[in-house]
């Protein structure tokens, strides 16, 4: 259904690291004693996106939009229902991750890593920093014990922790520091790609800002490519080069950050930006805010046509009848709305 061109191994542009086409993840709904298949929860439905080398792609959406699932599917933490995931390895070889088995994926995992939201549950409490940060090296057979120790100490320094802490256990650290341990671990094998899943959402304001700066420094230092998943629009505007907006398992809009925030093309993007409470009381008093009606629909029973139409203030008859495709419009932006060109929506930037 996507109108994006579907690249093959040969036609992937040189600057693209990840190319996802028609990604789908359905969970079967089973009923009755015999577990009869009665339908699907379409957690991810037809997601297509490209991530360029060295850029940060932000993925925003509310809970249940499937933004984390997209990242986990790309890293093959789950099996996908359908779709193509092309990945450019560091030796420029192009692989379709969707076709690989778990065992075949293992060597590739060195090149793509993930940072988790919860700094408490994502570190094994029974392992020291040496074991935690060094584990990827042990798994991939990189270096002997002494080399691993040196590398771990170096990584701790890189993320702003003291190398003397190498024999400590995670319980000795605060949330923000634990997040840094997770970052050090993700960096251990020099990956080219890191998916940060709500990486600073659980942290206090002052600590979140420190960690965001760290992530940006590391990107510059190591030429990393980020997929930055968050529900915080202010954060995504700050860190991302391009942003994708997700709603109910579908990408609604993808655009360069500045364009998205100054001139959104999808009504949902507009509503999302209007809903964010701003730390600006005077502005809030003058800003017109019409809260979105209703709540996100149930993925097991999505609305017909455009999944956003029941809440959309601009919805017309066509919206409930036809599913809009993710189309490429002027300026290289993509949007999934029948009336993107006709609407004149308001962004967050004045």
């Amino acid at each position: 259904m996507s109108e994006l061109p579907i690249p093959n191994h040969a036609s992937l542009p040189d600057d693209v690291l990840f190319s996802v086409r028609g990604l789908k993840k359905y969970f079967p709904i089973q009923a009755g004693w015999l577990k009869k298949h009665v339908g699907d929860v379409k957690a991810i439905d037809d997601v297509s996106l490209d991530i360029k080398k060295g850029e940060t792609l932000g993925l925003v959406g509310e809970s249940g939009s499937g933004k984390s699932t997209v990242a986990r599917l790309m890293l093959r933490a789950y099996d996908l229902t359908d779709g193509q995931i092309l990945f450019r390895r560091s030796n420029n070889e192009i692989v379709d991750l969707s076709k690989l088995t778990d065992r075949e994926m293992r060597p590739l995992r060195a090149e793509m890593q993930m940072i988790f939201q919860d700094p408490y549950s994502s570190l094994n409490p029974r392992m020291t920093l040496l074991e935690l940060v060094g584990e990827p090296m042990v798994i991939h057979g990189v270096g002997n014990a002494g080399e691993i120790k040196d590398r771990v100490a170096e990584l701790l320094k890189v993320v702003g922790l003291r190398p003397e802490f190498i024999n400590r256990y995670p319980h000795a650290f605060s949330g923000g520091q634990r997040q840094r341990i997770g970052i050090a671990r993700a960096l251990a094998l020099n990956p080219s790609f890191i998916a940060a899943d709500e990486a600073v959402s659980a942290l206090d304001v002052s600590v979140a800002a420190q960690n965001i700066n760290l992530l940006q420094d590391l990107q510059e230092q190591f030429g990393l490519t980020y997929l930055f998943i968050t529900h915080d629009l202010g954060m995504v505007e700050h860190i991302a080069d391009r942003v994708g907006v997700m709603y109910l398992g579908r990408l609604m809009e993808v655009a360069p950050t500045e364009l998205l925030f100054s001139k959104p093309l999808h009504p949902y993007t507009e509503a999302l930006m209007a809903a964010v409470p701003q730390p600006d009381p005077r502005g809030n008093r003058t800003r017109k805010r019409v809260p979105l009606k209703g709540e996100i629909a149930n993925a097991a029973n999505p609305p017909s046509g455009c999944s956003f139409h029941p809440r959309c203030p601009y919805a017309q008859a066509k919206c409930s009848a036809e599913v809009p495709a993710l189309r490429t419009v002027a300026g290289g932006r993509q949007v999934r709305c029948h009336f993107a060109e006709e609407l004149s929506l308001v962004g967050a930037v004045a």
């Binding site: 988790f116 919860d118 549950s121 570190l123 094994n124 584990e135 798994i139 671990r185």
Partner: peptide, 25 residues
């Protein structure tokens, strides 16, 4: 647990996940 997923995403085998992460806990 996230840390079991983290180990898997680091390329750990099922055997390693069970013996190093699950059984000790």
């Amino acid at each position: 647990e996230d840390y079991v997923l983290a180990a898997r995403l680091s390329g750990a085998s099922e055997y390693r996940i069970i013996t190093k992460h699950m059984l000790p806990s």
